[in-house]
Simulated scan of single mutants.
Amino acid sequence: MAAFNMTPSDPSTFILTGIPGLEPAHVWISIPFSTFYTIGLLGNVMVLFVVGKEQTLHKPMYLLLCMLALTDISTSTSVIPKALCIFWFNLKGITVGGCLTQMFFLHAVSVMHSAVLVTMAFDRYVAICSPLRYATILTNERIAKLGLVGLIRAVLIILPLPLLLIRQPFCANRIIPHTYCEHIAVVKMSCGNITVNRTYGLVMAFVVIGLDLTLIALSYGLIIRAVLRISSKKAHQKALNTCTAHVCVMLTFYTPFLFSSLTHRFSQGFAPHSHIILANLFFLIPPMLNPIIYGVKTKELRDKVGKYSSRICLPVRH
């Protein structure tokens, strides 16, 4: 059981401690973590399955929901299985290459997730402000291209993070007080000059999220202006209801993301275990809630999910 005897002095390994100070409670903490992860996985797989099977759902909005589901699955899967291995089996070792790969993947997927939310805001803008041109402006092919652009952007923006780190000398003490290889946590393991790494990480986070939030705010500004021009209150409510799910999904993503980023960099008095728990919940709560939010707010999707769920639950007749 080499993983149990692994020491920080191993030159090719980092040690992920899990949640410092709460080691005796790791098994208990793993219960909500594994439950949330399983619910999120099942919910997002169900969305992908239903949209894939139902020809009537092969529309831009549902293609965006599939992109969101894929980013949700990727986000939680890049972090939670390793965290559960720490909680259950004390498997704390991770190679430097594995750590940098995990770091690249989880940050790239987060940037991709933000790009999907921007595209969804644009989708809502076109649906409300130019409903007659919706089918010609937003085709499945155009949505797929926007998704590809978002993926390329995420890779190009995040790739410098591991490339800058791999050139750094790491100190003898390679203990990372976290459940996953977060960028700043890994940067702190370096004995070299980390000014460029810190600056790029900070600028990248705020430029990307700042740009995306600006585009979303612009879309919703135009939506609100268009809605206010409608005289009917019923039409007001109907138009705004189409945006409710997207607004809820944005709040579940951007709020914990910004809070986690700021506390990790600037809050010296914030309890480390509290920050780590919140950081993990960022990878658990949105993937769990997003399928529920869209299932509740989107009647067509809810009906199709209900149809397949009833087939699964019906007893087999002999």
Rank of each mutant, 00 (worst) to 15 (best):
Val45Lys: 07
Pro162Asn: 10
Cys313Phe: 09
Leu284His: 00
Pro32Gly: 13
Gly147Phe: 10
Lys307Trp: 14
His58Leu: 01
Ile29Gln: 03
Val126Arg: 07
Tyr220Leu: 04
Arg174Gln: 11
Cys313His: 02
Ala172Ile: 07
Ser74Tyr: 03
Lys297Leu: 10
Leu278Thr: 08
Leu65Ile: 00
Leu146Val: 00
Ala235Lys: 04
Ser74Thr: 06
Leu57Ser: 02
Met120Ser: 09
Ser76Ile: 07
Glu141Trp: 00
Ile276Glu: 07
His178Tyr: 15
Leu41Trp: 09
Ser309Thr: 15
Thr244Pro: 04
Cys99Met: 07
Arg174Val: 06
Arg174Tyr: 13
Thr214Asn: 03
Leu132Asn: 14
Cys171Gly: 14
Met250Glu: 07
Ser74Ile: 01
Ile152Trp: 01
Phe259Val: 03
His246Asn: 15
Gly21Ser: 14
Ser34Pro: 02
Ala217Pro: 07
Leu63Tyr: 01
Ser78Glu: 08
Glu141His: 07
Asp303Tyr: 07
Leu163Met: 08
Phe14Asp: 02
Met189Val: 11
Gly21Asn: 04
Phe105Ala: 15
Val196Tyr: 09
Arg167Ile: 05
Arg142Leu: 11
Ile312Leu: 12
Tyr62Leu: 02
Tyr134Pro: 00
Leu218Ala: 13
Leu258His: 03
Pro60Met: 01
Glu54Val: 13
Pro287Asn: 05
Leu289Tyr: 08
Gln237Lys: 13
Arg311Lys: 10
Ile31His: 10
Ile19Arg: 04
Phe14His: 02
Ile293Val: 15
Gln102Thr: 10
His275Trp: 12
Thr75Gly: 04
Ser190Pro: 03
Lys53Thr: 11
Ala2Tyr: 14
